[in-house]
Simulated scan of single mutants.
Amino acid sequence: MTALTDALAELLAEGLEDELYTAGAAGVRIGDERALAVVGRHGLDDPTPVSGDSLFDLASMSKAYVGAAILRLIDEGRIDPEAPVAEILPVGAGEGHDRITMRMLLTHAAGFPAEQLLWKDRAIPAEERRQRVLSTPLESAPGAEFRYSCVGFIAAGAVAEALTGLPLPDLVRTLVTEPLGLVRTGYGPVDPAHAVATEDESYVGRGMVQGEVHDELSWSLGGRVANAGIFAPVGEALSFAESYLDDRLLGPRGWRLATSPAPAPALPAGFAHSYGLRIADPGFLGDVPAIGHTGFTGTMFWVQPERRVAVTLLTNRVHPRRDRADIGAFRVRFSQAIARLAAS
């Protein structure tokens, strides 16, 4: 193994020893060198060793894939990010909802609440639930406040579906995964035998989740919406991150919108937001100047285009329960360790 692979394996082993997860995988590109490492097993009750083929629930990392698809539509001139999306599909409810733009949705400034708890009521028919989520009342005027919102991103995906006439899985496949040659990345459900376990969600009658989306809201909407639902193996997750180092996926405008701070209301101190990604977020990057995204299941990726560095970390830190492990400090430690390797 190369020194970079050894370093990845050592970092993953630390998280495993600290019982932050049962399954971990990481990939790094530094210049022309690429390395992957895996550790652990699929679950406490699944002794399948983690391999390069193991599928991880990306959780909110899915937002980056959907964001990339929408940026390609912007590159093609099919979406004006500053035009009201109501021209394509009305979303939200309340004063000003007809002024919501795609920029606001992708930068979490549209005014939507952070969550929608309709998943708790299984008696609501699926299509009615979807419409009620899309028409969620706003908590603030469009463009006035930053509020990280899964609801807003679900709305962004629905707008893209309405524009193209394609279901979101087909849209992501056509615009993102196929151009990058990713054959095992996509929306679930996937074969549980090839997936790492996430959480015991017996509280909604699911039992241990494995091969289906972990996020309750996405699950209640069929598991194929923009806030969560994509699965990937570590090598392909790294390939997606690497696409921000070249022009294989995004055109000049899309790449600039993905990697530069977007016009936005005041954000929490310490980070900025692009069209779909966080910039220099100390919550998972520490002091590393990079762009990327995290996922609730214990996933993240980040890139430094100017240094040709791409990183992904995939875990199942919510297994068997979300309150068992806080992976925040480990993410920061991991990010800083890779940044030091890249600078050496």
Rank of each mutant, 00 (worst) to 15 (best):
T107C: 10
R132C: 13
A258M: 11
R173T: 14
L277S: 04
L4I: 08
E242T: 01
A310Y: 11
T185S: 02
G165P: 00
P113M: 04
P261Q: 10
S54D: 05
F301S: 02
V204D: 09
G165M: 03
T259W: 10
A195L: 00
L267I: 03
A272Q: 15
L249V: 13
M208S: 06
P47K: 02
G222F: 01
I74R: 03
A23H: 10
D18R: 15
M102L: 07
V133H: 14
T259D: 10
N227D: 06
V133M: 11
L221Q: 12
F330A: 09
V309M: 15
W255C: 13
V234K: 14
L285G: 13
P125S: 08
L249E: 08
V38G: 11
K120Y: 10
L36Y: 03
A197C: 07
F146N: 01
S135N: 10
D75W: 11
A35S: 09
G254C: 14
E178G: 08
G111R: 11
D170Q: 00
E145I: 05
A160V: 01
S62M: 00
A325L: 00
M104A: 10
A162W: 06
A83E: 08
A232R: 09
L249C: 13
A110E: 15
S335K: 03
T164W: 01
D18K: 15
P233H: 06
G157I: 00
L314I: 02
G77Y: 12
V91W: 02
L267R: 00
T22M: 05
L16M: 04
L249G: 08
R333H: 06
S149H: 00
P263Y: 00
E19P: 09
I88D: 04
L20K: 02
R256T: 15
S274T: 14
D246H: 06
L250G: 10
E178I: 04
E161N: 07
P142M: 02
A310C: 12
A195K: 00
F284C: 00
R129Y: 10
E161S: 09
E10H: 05
A160N: 01
E178V: 06
Y244C: 04
T107K: 09
I124F: 05
T174G: 12
D45T: 15
R224L: 02
G31F: 03
R34P: 07
V66H: 02
G295D: 08
A228E: 06
I327R: 08
S274P: 02
A195R: 01
A144P: 08
G67H: 04
N316I: 12
A13C: 06
I291T: 02
G15I: 07
L73P: 02
D75E: 09
R99H: 03
R41K: 12
E95F: 04
I154R: 04
